Deep mutational scan, measured.
Amino acid sequence: MATADDFKLIRDIHSTGGRRQVFGSREQKPFEDLVDLGWLKRSSVDSRATHYQITERGTSAAL
């Protein structure tokens, strides 16, 4: 179930172009929650960072 923080984060991601790069596993937790909701997808993972991209469902949630 989505929380107020989830909606705040997806709106922030949407307003800044729909993509986010995250460093460190602790910082990934809120983004992984949005992946579980179907609002974000992991577009790539490298040794230092994970890249996320907003989905259509995420765009709808952000509006």
Rank of each mutant, 00 (worst) to 15 (best):
L37W: 03
I54R: 00
E27I: 06
D46W: 03
R48G: 14
V35I: 07
G58I: 01
K8F: 08
L37T: 02
M1R: 12
L40R: 01
A2T: 05
R48Y: 13
D6N: 13
P30D: 05
S60Q: 15
S60W: 14
S43K: 10
S60N: 12
D6C: 08
R20Y: 07
P30W: 05
T16H: 10
R20K: 08
D36T: 14
G18Y: 02
D46F: 05
R19N: 11
T3H: 06
H51T: 15
D12P: 01
G58H: 01
S47T: 11
Y52A: 01
R11G: 05
S47W: 09
G38N: 04
F31C: 04
G18N: 03
R19G: 08
D36V: 15
M1P: 11
P30G: 05
M1V: 13
Y52V: 01
S44N: 10
D5C: 14
I13P: 01
G24P: 05
F23P: 09
D36A: 15
R57Q: 14
G18W: 02
R19L: 10
S44E: 11
D36R: 14
R42W: 04
K41I: 15
T55A: 02
M1I: 13
V22E: 03
F23V: 13
W39V: 00
A2I: 06
R57A: 15
S47R: 08
S43Y: 13
D6Y: 07
D36E: 14
T3V: 05
D33Y: 12
A2P: 15
P30Q: 08
S25D: 14
F31E: 02
G24K: 09
S43H: 12
A62M: 03
M1G: 12
T16E: 09
T59Y: 07
T59I: 15
H14V: 07
R11D: 03
L63E: 08
D36L: 15
F7N: 03
Y52L: 01
S44C: 14
W39M: 02
F23Q: 10
I10V: 06
R26Q: 15
R20Q: 05
Q28N: 08
V45S: 11
L37R: 06
F31G: 00
F31M: 05
T59G: 04
F23E: 11
L37V: 03
Y52N: 01
V35E: 03
L37S: 02
S25K: 13
Y52T: 00
K41M: 14
E56S: 10
T50F: 09
Q53H: 09
L34C: 04
H14L: 13
V35N: 02
R57K: 14
R26N: 14
P30E: 06
K8L: 10
E56W: 09
H51Y: 14
W39K: 00
R11C: 11
L34E: 00
A61V: 09
Q53D: 08
V22W: 03
G24W: 06
G17N: 07
I54M: 05
A2S: 05
E32M: 11
R42H: 06
L9I: 04
D33N: 14
D5N: 11
D5A: 13
L37Y: 05
W39I: 01
G58L: 00
G17C: 08
Q21E: 14
I10S: 00
S15P: 00
Y52K: 01
R48Q: 14
T50C: 07
I10A: 02
R26T: 15
V45K: 10
R42A: 08
S43W: 12
S44H: 15
S60C: 14
S43D: 12
S44Y: 15
I54Y: 00
T59Q: 09
K29H: 06
Q28L: 11
A4K: 10
K8W: 11
T3W: 04
E32C: 06
A4V: 11
D36N: 14
D12T: 07
Q53N: 07
G58C: 01
R48I: 14
E27P: 08
K41G: 06
T3A: 05
D36W: 11
T16S: 12
G24R: 09
L63F: 06
S47L: 11
G18A: 02
R42L: 09
E32H: 06
G38C: 05
I13A: 00
S15T: 10
A49S: 15
T16Y: 06
Q28H: 07
A4P: 13
R19P: 03
L63V: 08
D33F: 12
R48M: 14
R19V: 13
L63G: 05
F23T: 12
S47M: 10
M1W: 12
R57E: 14
S44K: 14
D46R: 05
S43C: 13
T16Q: 11
S60I: 15
K41R: 13
T16D: 08
I10E: 00
F7G: 02
D12M: 10
E27Q: 12
L63K: 08
W39T: 00
T59S: 07
L34G: 01
G24T: 07
F7I: 09
L9H: 03
Q53A: 09
I13G: 00
L34M: 03
Q28E: 05
D6R: 07
I13R: 00
D5E: 13
I10L: 06
A2C: 07
H51Q: 11
T50K: 07
K8P: 02
L34W: 01
Q53G: 04
S43M: 15
R42S: 06
K41V: 15
L34K: 01
R42Y: 06
P30Y: 05
H14E: 06
Q28I: 09
S60Y: 13
D6W: 05
G18Q: 02
P30R: 10
A61F: 05
K29F: 04
G38M: 05
K8R: 13
R11H: 07
S60E: 15
D33Q: 14
L9F: 03
D33H: 15
A2Y: 06
H14R: 06
E56A: 12
G18K: 02
A4M: 11
F23A: 12
F31A: 02
G17I: 03
T16K: 11
Q53W: 09
V45F: 10
R48A: 13
A62I: 04
G24M: 07
H51G: 07
F23L: 12
Q28K: 11
A62F: 03
V22T: 04
T3Y: 05
G18S: 03
S44Q: 13
S43A: 14
D33W: 12
L9D: 01
Q21M: 14
F23K: 10
R57Y: 09
D12H: 09
R57D: 12
L34D: 00
I54K: 01
E32I: 07
S60M: 14
Q28W: 05
R42F: 05
I54D: 01
H51D: 11
Y52W: 03
D5S: 11
L9P: 01
S25M: 09
Q28D: 04
T55E: 02
T55P: 00
I54A: 02
I54E: 02
E32F: 04
S15L: 13
